[in-house]
């Protein structure tokens, strides 16, 4: 067991996923199996190997600082589950 239910639960909270006891049980065992398989990466010598975060070798992709029209606030809010006076509305934030 590499990853405890506590860690899975904590990870769930970081990802804003609430896990029921059953889910916690299931995901813990599945994640452990996957992580066990992934363990094989530890066999490889990666000394002096640079990481690849993206395969492209492009440099300095930039855009010119010009303004283009924005969406209207109606368009911006069109998909909103809750809105009021051109604002998105959410439960009270502390």
């Amino acid at each position: 067991m590499q990853i405890s239910k506590e860690i899975v639960s904590h990870t769930g909270h970081l990802a804003r996923l609430h896990l029921s006891d059953d889910e916690l049980e299931l995901y813990s065992s599945q994640l452990n199996k996957i992580l066990e398989y992934i363990e094989k990466l530890k066999k490889i010598d990666i000394t002096n190997i640079a990481p690849t975060f993206n395969v492209l070798n492009l440099k300095n992709v930039l855009r010119v600082d010009t303004v283009r029209p924005s969406l209207t606030s109606e368009e911006a809010l069109k998909n909103a589950p809750d809105k009021q006076d051109n604002f998105f509305v959410v439960p009270k934030v502390y």
Partner: peptide
């Protein structure tokens, strides 16, 4: 700057809510 860091919306201050978005 005139426009935002990753898009072309204006950086103007004081516009009506959610009117400078894309």
């Amino acid at each position: 700057t005139e426009s935002k860091i990753f898009c072309s919306c204006s950086t103007k201050f004081g516009n009506s809510p959610n009117s400078l978005t894309c």
